[in-house]
Structure formats: C-alpha cells, structure tokens
Simulated scan of single mutants.
Amino acid sequence: MNRRLALLAPLAFLLPFPALAEKIPLGAISDYLNGLSTVEADFTQVNSDGSISTGKIFIKRPGRVRFEYAPPDRSLVIAGGNQVAIFDAKSNQPPERYPLKRTPLNLILAENIDLSRAKMVVGHTEDGSSTRVRAQDPENPEYGSIELVFTANPVELRQWVITDDLGAQTTVILGEMKKGGQLGARLFDITAETAARGD
C-alpha cells in the first residue's frame, strides 16, 4: 500500500513529555476530540521505511484533513467529501483516491467520536508521561488501526501512529496546534486541487 495512505504509523518515537500523569479516561479523550473543530500544526512524519517527512497539517472536523508536505517532497494528501486523495508530486497522473472510511484516520475525523463503543478501543495504556489509545473500526478491523498519544493537564493530542491493512506503520508527530481558526473549504476540495494541478 502507498506509504501515504497509511497517512498517514510507528516507532517507539516519543516527544519529551512532561512529568508523570495518570491514565486519561476514554470519556475525557472523546470529549477532547469532539471539541476540536479546526486545527493547524506543523508535523513530522516517520514513514514505515524509516524515512522522515515534514509539513503542515490542517484539520477541519468532521471529515476533512490536508497534509502539505514540505520541499523537496511537495506531495499532498487531502481528505474531503468522504474521500482521501493522494497527490504524488513526482507523477503527472490523477491522484489516487480511497474511501475515507477505509482509513484509520476516519476514527478521529468522525462527527461524533465515542471511544467507549464496543470493540473500538483495543488498547488503553499509560507509561508515566503519556496516555496511548489504540482504536480500530469495530465493523472493519482489517482496515488497520490508529494509536493516539496524549498528554494530560490539559489533554492534548501529541502524535498518532497508523498501522495500515498490510501492517506498515507511519507516525505523525504534531507541533504546537493552533485551534479554532477559520479554514476555507478550498483546502479540502479534491476536485478543485485536481483541476489546479492539471491532473
């Protein structure tokens, strides 16, 4: 599978987290994720082959995300309209498209996130500095999983690790998040982006 469809999962790769914390309850994590409307942040991505990419991420819940990869990569991943499109900067072909529901990222882009749903959370641990929650689509575990890493006081999403349907892992580490700003619909418009690129 294309390394970006993973989006897009992981190493034992942790940021320096603050002091010891108790495990954050799933209800508090669900509330935090549901409270995120828009997010902008820089990100570092550790790919399954060990290579590292950087860029900027834009999230607009529900259902929309944009990964802009920094030069020399210049690739782009957009989720919008229930689709994920992967624009390969090295290709003059139209973007690869997949249903968003087939990617683990759909679990944090859903309109109403409820991590207490049966069989959704398959791991919930705390290591003294962070809480890790591994989730999958209860109806379609074969689509892969996403492991979210949070710090507490206040709850903050720091990174995620996506394991795709082939077992490949990609880690996305978030920089400081700017929340609640205005993000235009054009950022998440796959059709407009395709036209602008002449694909």
Rank of each mutant, 00 (worst) to 15 (best):
L100E: 06
L107H: 05
A79E: 07
P99T: 06
V84M: 03
L109R: 01
Q93L: 11
R61Y: 01
T103E: 12
P62C: 02
D73V: 10
R61G: 08
Q83M: 08
N92Q: 15
Q93T: 15
L107P: 07
I108V: 02
G55C: 11
P99E: 05
A79L: 02
E68Q: 12
I78S: 04
T54A: 09
S75Q: 06
Q83H: 08
R64L: 00
A79G: 04
A89T: 05
P94Q: 06
N106R: 14
R97H: 06
A89I: 01
K101F: 13
A70G: 05
E96T: 12
Q93S: 14
F67S: 00
P99G: 08
R64F: 07
E96A: 10
R97F: 08
S91N: 04
A110K: 15
A110S: 12
I86T: 03
Y98E: 00
S53N: 10
I59W: 00
I59T: 02
G55L: 04
R74S: 11
L100R: 06
S75G: 10
S53E: 10
T54P: 03
I86C: 10
R97M: 13
L109C: 00
I52L: 14
R61P: 04
I52A: 05
A70I: 06
I108W: 06
A70Q: 15
A85L: 05
I59S: 02
S53G: 13
K60H: 11
N82K: 09
E111D: 15
K60L: 02
I86P: 05
T103L: 13
G81Y: 12
P94Y: 12
V84G: 00
K101M: 13
I59C: 07
L76Q: 11
E111M: 07
T103D: 03
I59E: 09
L105C: 08
K56Y: 08
G55F: 09
K90M: 14
K60Y: 05
G55Q: 03
Q93E: 11
N82H: 15
F87V: 01
P99A: 09
L109Y: 01
F58E: 11
Y69N: 00
I57E: 05
I59A: 03
K56Q: 13
G63N: 14
A79R: 02
R66T: 09
G80A: 10
G63V: 01
I57W: 08
R97A: 05
N106P: 05
R74N: 14
G55R: 02
F67E: 00
D88T: 03
N82G: 14
R64H: 14
G55N: 00
N82Y: 07
R74P: 03
P71S: 10
P94M: 03
G81I: 08
F87K: 13
Y98F: 15
Q93C: 04
T54I: 02
P95F: 11
P62K: 07
I78L: 00
K60R: 15
Y98I: 05
I52S: 04
P72G: 02
G80R: 10
V77R: 00
G81S: 11
P94D: 09
P71L: 07
P94I: 12
P71Q: 14
A79Q: 01
F87G: 04
A70F: 01
L107S: 07
P94G: 07
I57V: 15
L76N: 01
P104Q: 14
K56D: 00
A89P: 02
R74H: 15
G63M: 12
F67L: 09
P62T: 01
L100W: 05
A110W: 06
G63Y: 07
S51F: 08
G55I: 03
G63I: 01
E111W: 14
